[in-house]
Design a protein around this nucleic acid. Structure first.
Lengths: 218, 218
DNA sequence: TACGAAAACGTACGTTGTACGGTACGGGTA
DNA sequence: TACCCGTACCGTACAACGTACGTTTTCGTA
């Protein structure tokens, strides 16, 4: 039997693949086992239950974020990590809503948080300012990922999709929404492009939090 | 039998109550029917299925947001609506993750979007700038709500909870995180307070997007 | 070869969403 | 009065789910 041994890692990898391909709702113990060529209950020797699989998935996604390096200038580091975070959450759209229900942060999650705080604290932010900055940038990244996951259309089909929704509206209702779709949504429009514009504004705002005292100039 | 007639509204109200009290996982058709003093299959005469209930719940939460009024100054209007949105999402912590999977926006959702866009468009923002501003503020509000829902502690217990997590860490790992918890988290600290600080930064950023041309001064 | 632990499996149970067919009832028409 | 039919409700049934429990298979070591 060429069947490889099961392991926690193989279980999580199979679960990630399944969630990516079929959606989070299709992620069942039976399906995971099936994909591993195994029986449902075999999985339970490597993870305690479905909840632990979900915890592991979230941490695996966090592990895909590029980690900022404390000591380097805060702004490019946070920009790099935020872009990679958004990319990872876009690759795994099921992950963002999962953040809420998972209350036991994994090692990658903690390392990520530690590195972000360290980057801020070592480049001119005092503790309260680092807290503000952390809350702001993560709220933005997660919120954007949530919005992006909600958009029911691929960038190519967004025009049709948006018009379709607007078309089902009562005539004359939602005039500003209708105007926005008519004037803005078109072949060149991709919602994802908003990320860069908004991230710059967020980073500008974080810059104003920076303590005046110890930081290197700009 | 004094039992009142069922209706779509009563079903949604019972579902909201249940989700608030017992969590979204406890929201089953049987539980909803039970709370209504009715049989499971009776609710199917008023909603098409569980998905439609979830859609209705999300729209009901959006209906709790205060709607900004186009024509009034953009900044206080958006501040008011953002505060009320955050409060509503905090009252219903199960709602934010649900935003992702619900792709059929309800009337309250559409009205909300329309009013936000209208407020921006009628106070000096051109269409692309309004799009940027909309993406930014909603990403922030949803993301913050998601973070707030994740915090596993009440404001009172946050100190113990945070220390507990840090205590389980390998010694010396995550030094910045440990420092942050030690210096920042205390009796006076409430994560929710970060919202006001961050929202001001977001609104500042949105202000810089405003077209120079037609807007009133300030 | 023998053996004990680790890994994998089979069976079974309670719960879920919901398809399907039946039942009670309140009027409108003949 | 007798009939009928649409609306609201309910009972039963089924497939799929997570997983508790007990059994079998596999494999490293002696």
């Amino acid at each position: 039997m060429a069947r490889q041994q099961l392991s926690r890692e193989r279980v999580l990898a199979a679960a990630t693949e399944l969630a990516d391909r079929e959606g989070i709702a299709a992620l069942t113990i039976r399906a995971v086992a099936n994909r591993l060529g195994s029986a449902p209950m075999a999985v339970y020797h490597h993870v305690a239950g479905k909840d632990e699989i979900l915890d592991g998935l979230v941490d695996a996604v966090f592990a895909e974020f590029e980690v900022p390096v404390p000591g380097r200038p805060w702004r490019p580091e946070l920009a790099r990590r935020s872009h990679s975070a958004r990319a990872a959450l876009a690759r795994h759209p099921w992950a963002t809503p999962l953040l809420e229900s998972r209350r036991r942060p994994g090692p990658a999650t903690l390392a990520q948080h530690d590195a972000v705080l360290g980057t801020l604290l070592s480049d001119g932010f005092d503790v309260p300012a680092a807290g503000h900055a952390f809350a702001l940038i993560d709220a933005f990244v997660y919120g954007f990922a949530l919005q992006e996951a909600t958009i029911p259309f691929t960038p190519d089909a967004i025009e049709d999709g948006a018009r379709e929704i607007v078309a089902t509206l009562p005539d004359g209702g939602y005039p500003h929404l209708a105007r926005f779709v008519a004037e803005r949504i078109g072949p060149g429009y991709a919602f994802g492009d908003e990320f860069d514009v908004c991230l710059e504004l967020v980073l500008d705002g974080i810059g104003t939090l920076r303590a005046a005292a110890p930081g290197a100039p700009r």
